[in-house]
């Protein structure tokens, strides 16, 4: 049981690490630090960096939370800690 809990917590931390990295990359990376480089590319009328800063990052934030919900739902059941 204890080992299963430890494994559960470890997997949870991996999910968090991956998803938070994505969170940082789309907002602080694409939207701020590399915005000028990305603005050289275009998505329809949007310079790409600008699109990430004002639209794309928000869409991806929503998807990140959805992904975490789905992953944890499966993980909870696998380790029998769901309600």
């Amino acid at each position: 049981m204890d080992q299963s809990r430890q494994q559960y917590w470890k997997t949870n931390k991996i999910y968090m690490f991956v998803l938070l990295s994505l969170w940082a990359v789309v907002s602080y990376g694409c939207g701020i630090v590399f915005v000028e480089e990305l603005n050289a590319f275009h998505l329809a009328g949007f310079p790409l960096g600008f699109w990430f800063a004002q639209q794309g990052s928000i869409f991806i934030f929503v998807l990140i939370i959805l992904a975490y919900f789905l992953l944890m739902d499966r993980l909870d059941k696998k380790h029998d800690v769901h309600e």
Binding site: S27, G31, A53, S57, I58, I65, Y68
Partner: peptide
């Protein structure tokens, strides 16, 4: 213009922290 992104990202990105942490 672009600088307005601080509000757009700032006031939405916090929910990722809330949901995960």
């Amino acid at each position: 213009g672009y600088s307005g992104s601080i509000y757009l990202m700032g006031w939405t990105g916090g929910y990722v922290l809330l949901a995960l942490l």
